[in-house]
């Protein structure tokens, strides 16, 4: 479904270019739940943001459903419709109500009428237990509620894959659970997911595959059981000893 070939990404800083991704190769299949862990600054988020081209790769190829997404002339907007994204800081639209947040994209892109989109929004909100918040503004919600709305907003586009960029890192501890619960239900429903997170319990429980990133490379990958109980490289052993 998603194929990444020799992905490099450098940022230009005042001190010259900094290479954040140093040649990543990945193949992510339909229905997989891939969790990416690693120390901060290892390039996890950059890798995730490259997949829907929020960051333009310096070199390498990213293929999504048979199309090279970073080729010149590729209609990125079209492909992004099928790649949902959830951000660390929610990025809900503060000037719109919850319902408008959810229906804006499908209606603007003429995929659904306003009535259809409203109907769908109501159903999705029900799934995450927030149907009473449809007419609230984001500023009136808690962090956990905002993130659940953000997930619903992405879901309203009926994406084929969902990217999660540290979805619980900006939340108060007591709200982490409700967001992870929604993600878990999403996973059980068969959604293909790529999740950058520090929640090791979530990785252990939900992931089909865990990637360990460090220093711009994927250092190790394995199914969660093996990943957590028999880490091979000393760097991963060191990392796990700190976070578990």
């Amino acid at each position: 479904m998603i194929t990444v070939k020799n992905l490099h990404k450098s940022f230009n800083t005042l001190n010259g270019p900094v290479e954040v991704l140093k040649g990543i190769n990945q193949e992510i299949k339909h229905g997989e739940k891939v969790v990416i862990v690693g120390p901060s600054g290892s390039g996890k988020s950059t890798f995730l943001r490259c997949i829907n081209l929020l960051e333009q790769p310096t070199s390498g190829e990213i293929w999504f459903e048979g199309k090279q997404i970073n080729a010149t002339g590729c209609d990125v907007d079209q492909l992004r419709r099928k790649i949902g994204m959830v951000f660390q800081h929610f990025n809900l639209f503060p000037h719109l109500t919850v319902r408008q947040n959810i229906t804006l994209a499908p209606v603007s892109l003429k995929l659904e009428t306003q009535d259809e989109a409203d109907e769908q929004a109501q159903q999705l909100l029900k799934r995450v237990g927030l149907e009473s918040k449809a007419d609230s503004f984001p500023g009136q919600l808690s962090g956990g509620q905002k993130q659940r709305i953000a997930i619903v907003r992405a879901m309203a586009m009926q994406p084929d894959v969902m990217l999660f960029d540290e979805p619980t890192s900006a939340l108060d501890p007591e709200m982490v659970g409700e967001v992870l619960q929604v993600m878990k239900e999403l996973a059980e429903a068969g959604m293909t997911m790529i999740v950058v997170t520090h929640e090791m319990a979530f990785a252990r429980e939900v992931a089909t595959r865990v990637l360990f990133m460090e220093d711009g490379n994927i250092q190790e990958e394995a199914p969660p059981k093996e990943f957590f109980s028999h880490p091979k490289s000393p760097r991963l052993q060191n990392f796990l000893s700190k976070v578990l």
Binding site: D77, Q78, N91, L92, A105, L109, A154
Partner: peptide, 30 residues
């Protein structure tokens, strides 16, 4: 207006222009 607003709009498949008109501009106006 926060950079994340443009990213959120684009990540939903909205064009740069639509995101500007429907998301960034109303907030900027305020």
């Amino acid at each position: 207006v926060d950079r994340g607003q443009m990213e959120a709009g684009r990540s939903l498949g909205l064009s740069q222009r639509t995101t500007m008109v429907k998301i960034i501009f109303p907030q900027a106006l305020k």
